[in-house]
Design a protein around this nucleic acid. Structure first.
Lengths: 337, 337
DNA sequence: TTGAAAGCGCTAACAC
DNA sequence: GTGTTAGCGCTTTCAA
């Protein structure tokens, strides 16, 4: 193994000069830097990560805790993870993957052993058991999602409340007067995952503000449940013409379920989804949607963490504003009847 | 920070004794071990990962390289990643997440800096640019998938050839005489991802062996393409009664597309998919399938790697035998006509 | 069964 | 602008 002393000897300088040339933590004359660079290349030098971590008390590794439970949309999690890795690499950091399953002990372990410098935690619940630990840890963290008590933490997410409202306003502007929200599976509401409630709140508030009739329906992600909901909505609200869907895998089945009972989208029913743009674009009929910007959230989470590692101050709450893209599933009420 | 010397002093032993008590690399008297354990608990000692890595030249971290490209089924990748993390933790290892995008340089970096002890590489191509590097690296690796030249490497995957054959034999045993394979998107074949060809080979061989008429159709994963394929199959092979689908997101759209043109599954058309069991079970009509056992592959990949790290020998090739589960989409030919 | 002590390879004072 | 050197916290000979 070639080490820093080898490079130093080869370049005719001291080890510390090589170290400083690499870190840029003190000025090096142009000529020296060139010689060092050449030596590094010639010898194929790679600094030993462990030695570095030990001497500098920085591992240059971030922990990413991913969920893997029912009701979570897997492609969103995956895209998020990839964007975190990509963003971390731009800052010369690597990413250690932890599963939710490891729980608090996992977080404590990677923090206390100095395996990682900082943590990103996905799928934060309203009353998350990990919050006290995260607050107490000597390492910075960023949470994806908002708990009930975010004070003292750094949180980021799509502004789901504004997203729910944006969907309703879009439908209202198209003249729809009776709208429904088909939401996440009941278990997601029950375990207090904030975003489900937030969408519901924004949805209801905007509907009230515009004087629309509105109802909310949690729903599982199977075709059978899609059919049930469609039937029930048709029966209970025959005047329904606007639908907001916040349940990624259900969008397509729902459209088909309505079709089966004689309601076409968008002719009879306008539909706005809250889902990744990619999904909305690739649907057979492109879906009007508010984007769930996983990649942006991941990238921004890393930026926040880097700021915190540099002891720069960051906002406690970052809410990304919703972006609604009109596609083919929303039309003015009664436009083709 | 509490360190090993603190524990040693507290327990009234030397640092090396604490170290050995922790690693088990030499016998410690029961009484001493108890005292040390108590001290560790009392002080809340956690060994510093970097210091450990430096002194032992073992980081206890594995690299996992995940793909993120078109044609890869995201839930499979995710489940695989989770199973790797879970298995690695059982062996006291952590997992560093790398994206395909980082390429060879990424592999070299984490290996040469001693950030990781070993590597798992997913989505290996027939002629993968990373193979020479992996062979040359001083760190063990396990590949998911089989390249054209697997010599000198350790590879593991589902036996896709046997899987393709198993599907055909199942259909043949039900009396079907004309079968088709709807496969991965064309780009997957083109870039030489082995499993697509392997399924095709096993499919054709088994069909020939049983004297069945057979055709193969790569297909993208959109509903539109599903419709095209369904129409084309019906037109070109009106006697078709058996279908093998090796394209996860296409299974459902395809069933619906056939339904639209008047072919019901399974009454008119029996269908076997190669897909995760979870997907097959949760479909509206449970799908007869050969399982893609992501979790098993991930777990076994970690086991292989642990053996290699322990300098135990491992087989170069591990092919998991296909497991076919009959569900509701396959019936004897002509059974309800 | 245990201890003493020499590193592991790097960083960051401190000195010039 | 550069060099000297004392650690960083742990593992592992070597010695008893």
């Amino acid at each position: 193994m070639v080490k820093i002393t080898d490079v130093a000897r080869h370049a005719g300088v001291s080890p510390s000069t090589v170290s400083y040339a690499l870190s840029g933590k003190r000025p090096i004359s142009e000529e020296t830097r060139q010689r060092i660079e050449a030596s590094i290349l010639a010898l194929g030098y790679r600094p030993h990560a462990g030695a570095r971590a030990l001497a500098s008390s920085r591992s240059n590794v971030l922990a990413l805790v991913v969920p893997f439970r029912s009701g979570m949309h897997v492609p969103v999690v995956m895209q998020f993870a990839v964007s975190v890795v990509t963003a971390a690499r731009r800052h010369d950091h690597d990413v250690l993957l932890l599963t939710q399953e490891e729980g608090e002990e996992g977080l404590r372990r990677v923090a206390d052993t100095a395996l990682v410098d900082a943590l990103i935690v996905m799928d934060v619940q309203m009353r998350d058991a990990r919050l006290p630990l995260l607050r107490a840890l000597d390492r910075p963290s960023v949470l994806i999602g908002f708990p009930a008590e975010p004070a003292g933490l750094t949180c980021i997410d799509l502004d789901f409340e504004a997203a729910g409202a944006a969907c309703v306003r879009h439908l209202a502007e198209l003249g729809h007067r009776c709208v429904a929200l088909v939401g996440s599976p009941p278990e997601v509401y029950l375990r207090g995952t904030g975003f489900a409630q937030r969408v519901a709140r924004g949805f209801t508030a905007a509907a009230d503000e515009r004087g629309l009739t509105s109802t909310i329906h949690p729903c599982g992600a199977t075709q059978a449940e899609a059919r049930d909901i469609a039937r029930r909505l048709l029966g209970e609200h025959p005047e329904l013409t606007g639908l907001v869907v916040h349940n990624e895998p259900l969008v397509q089945p729902l459209i088909e379920a309505f079709q089966e009972i004689g309601l076409r989208v968008p002719e009879d029913l306008s539909l706005v989804a809250i889902c990744p743009d990619e999904q909305a674009e690739q649907a057979p009929v492109p879906v009007t949607s508010v984007a769930v910007p996983s990649a942006e959230i991941g990238t921004e989470a890393v930026e926040l963490l880097m700021h915190k590692l540099d002891r720069r101050s960051v906002p406690e709450a970052t809410l990304l504003p919703p972006r609604l893209t009109r596609r083919a599933t929303t039309v003015p009420r009664g436009s083709t009847r």
